[in-house]
Structures are given as structure tokens and as C-alpha cells.
């Protein structure tokens, strides 16, 4: 019986594996699987840093700092970078830390920045004002992070105030020299936002002269841009740097987190799911991780069965050759 099974496994067409992985990934889209997500220190540190910026801005509003999101991603890595971007933007909007977005390697970056905000707005449309003070304790607890925005802004909490809460600088192709110019002279490189409006006229940009006034730079990327920031920009600007990257890049980024050259690290969809948990949302990251987990379990099972089949075949071949 077992012998037959291993022989079938040995001969199994790989397309059956593809099909089963496809099914395993699809199931959680329709049947949610409860998943416990552990938040790692590298994710928690980033969250705490943004909370600190909020407190610093409240203490010293005349010297308010912003968070800068560098959108170095596009369609090819949106599976991992979109949820990261969405979770971080949601956090800034919840607590009222102004943030800017720009791109220096991805021409589509600014457009994706807008799509992400549209996605946040769509999610907010599904939440009623009365839900924040609902009798349902579970719902209240779920909405607690977002309630901070509701408490601050009242009925207009769904409107994202462009220029006050958020500005999109746009895309500009630039080499290292231009990026380093932006440390102290932002407007020499980006005089206008992505729609062509003068950048300096926006309220949240009044105190921003360059990267030096960005308390935190979050590089969201699927490309090898980390060293550009670590080697050249942040040592001079004094800004903290957080790195949100695709899963495959994360192992190489950990040494920089350990040495505190980056203060936070989000690794792929998993990092995004952790951050979503911290900001109390269930968007693409957490939904995706349900599929991810089921598929991983399936792949592990397939690897074990494949290896057992291989060992069985090897033993059988040896036995046959002895005869």
C-alpha cells in the first residue's frame, strides 16, 4: 500500500502540485482561517518610532517633523509592498503624523501612492461613525486605533487633507548626487508636487527644507536601494531609516537592523501583516497571510512526501541491484 503510494508520488506530474497549491492558496479567500500573528521587534520598533514622532510634534509644533515614504516599488512587487505601504500610511493617518511620498526609481510610484490611499478610503467607507461607540466591545476594540482619528477630526474623519496630512512629491529620475542634494535642498529637485502645485505652499511642508526635516524615512522597495540610504543619505541627514522590502531581500537587511542603521524592518507580506495587526486593520497583508500559511503547510507536506518517495525509490533500486 505504502509502496504504491510512494511510487505514485514519484511519478506524480508536477502540475498536480501546482493545482493543489493553487487550491490551498484560494481556500482562505472564501473561508477565513483564524491566524495568530506574532509581532516581531523590528516591526514594533517602526510602529513605536512613528508614535514617538507624533508625541514630539505635539510637544514642539513649531518644529514638526514629517515621515517620508520612498515608493521604490511598482506592479511587479505590489503583492508585498502595497500592504506594507497601506499599513504605514494608515498608521500616520490614524494618529495625525504628516507624511510625504516620493519616488526616485519607480516612475509609477506616485500613482501607486494614490492607489494605496484610495484603498484606505474605500475601507473607511465601510465603517459607520456609530461603530466607534458601538455596544459591541469586540468591534470597539477593533476600531480603537482608528478612533484616534475619529476623535481628532470628528465627522470629517474620512477625508484625507491633502497638503496637511499628506503630500505626494511625485517621481523624479535622479542619481545619487541629486538625492544627496535633497538632504538640505528639497525644492531644488522637487519644486512642485506630482500635480504641478508649488510644494512649499502646502502647510505641512512649511518647515521642511529637505531630508533633514524628515524624522523618519521609510524605504518601501523591491530593489536594492537600501545601501543608497544607509551609505549616503541618512548618515548626513540624521533621519531615522526604516526598510520595508520584499521577503527575499529581508535576510540581507537584518544586519543593518541589528547595527541600528535601520530602526525598523518589514519583511514582505508577513511584515505587512504584523504592522496591520499593530494598527488594527485587516487588509491585504493579514488576508494574504492566511493563504500563505495554508500553502506553506501544503508545500512542507509535499517536500516531506517527495523526500520519502525519493528515499523509498533509492532503497528499492539498491535492493534490486543486489538481486
Amino acid at each position: 500500500m505504502a509502496a504504491n503510494f510512494f511510487e505514485i508520488m514519484e511519478r506524480l506530474d508536477r502540475r498536480w502540485i501546482y493545482l493543489t497549491v493553487f487550491v490551498a492558496l484560494s481556500i482562505p479567500f472564501f473561508i477565513p482561517i483564524p491566524l495568530r500573528i506574532e509581532v516581531m521587534p523590528e516591526c514594533k520598533d517602526l510602529h513605536e518610532r512613528i508614535e514617538e514622532i507624533k508625541q514630539q510634534n505635539e510637544k514642539d509644533p513649531d518644529n514638526a517633523k514629517i515621515v517620508l515614504i520612498s515608493i521604490s516599488w511598482s506592479a511587479n512587487v505590489q503583492a508585498e509592498c502595497w500592504p506594507q505601504h497601506e499599513a504605514i500610511a494608515e498608521h500616520c493617518l490614524q494618529i495625525g503624523v504628516p507624511f510625504a511620498a516620493f519616488s526616485f526609481i519607480s516612475p509609477e510610484g506616485p500613482q501607486f501612492g494614490e492607489y494605496v490611499l484610495d484603498s484606505i478610503k474605500r475601507r473607511w467607507e465601510g465603517i459607520k461613525d456609530e461603530d466607534f461607540n458601538s455596544d459591541d466591545e469586540e468591534l470597539r476594540e477593533k476600531l480603537a486605533p482608528l478612533k484616534r482619528r475619529y476623535d481628532r477630526m470628528g465627522k470629517n474623519w474620512r477625508e484625507i487633507q491633502y497638503g496637511v496630512e499628506y503630500v505626494n512629491w511625485g517621481y523624479k529620475y535622479m542619481d545619487l548626487a541629486a538625492l544627496m542634494t535633497m538632504i538640505s535642498d528639497l525644492y531644488g529637485i522637487f519644486p512642485e508636487d506630482y500635480k504641478g502645485a508649488p510644494l512649499q505652499d502646502f502647510p505641512m511642508m512649511k518647515q521642511v527644507k529637505g531630508f533633514v526635516d524628515c524624522a523618519l524615512i521609510v524605504e518601501i522597495t523591491g530593489s536594492g536601494t537600501l545601501l543608497t540610504w544607509v551609505m549616503y543619505v541618512t548618515p548626513q541627514s540624521g533621519s531615522d531609516l526604516a526598510f520595508a522590502c520584499t521577503g527575499v531581500m529581508a535576510p540581507e537587511a537584518y544586519p543593518y537592523f541589528k547595527s541600528k542603521q535601520i530602526i525598523g524592518l518589514l519583511s514582505g507580506m508577513d511584515g505587512a501583516a504584523q504592522y496591520e495587526k499593530l494598527v488594527g486593520i485587516k487588509a491585504r497583508g493579514r488576508k494574504g497571510m492566511e493563504s500563505q500559511n495554508l500553502a506553506h503547510l501544503w508545500v512542507i507536506l509535499m517536500v516531506i512526501l517527495g523526500n520519502l518517495s525519493f528515499l523509498y525509490k533509492r532503497k528499492k533500486d539498491r535492493d534490486d541491484s543486489k538481486k
Binding site: 497549491v21 493553487f22 492558496l25 505590489q78 503583492a79 508585498e80 502595497w82 520584499t246 521577503g247 527575499v248 529581508a250 535576510p251 519583511s267 514582505g268 507580506m269 508577513d270 491585504r284 494574504g288 493563504s291 500563505q292 500553502a295 506553506h296 508545500v299
Partner: peptide
């Protein structure tokens, strides 16, 4: 993490 990344692309 590469496997996780490829799965993520498919999930997306």
C-alpha cells in the same frame, strides 16, 4: 523567504 515572496505574488 523567496518561496514566501513567490507565494505572495500568486496571492496578489
Amino acid at each position: 523567504t523567496t518561496v514566501m515572496g513567490r507565494m505572495s505574488l500568486l496571492i496578489d
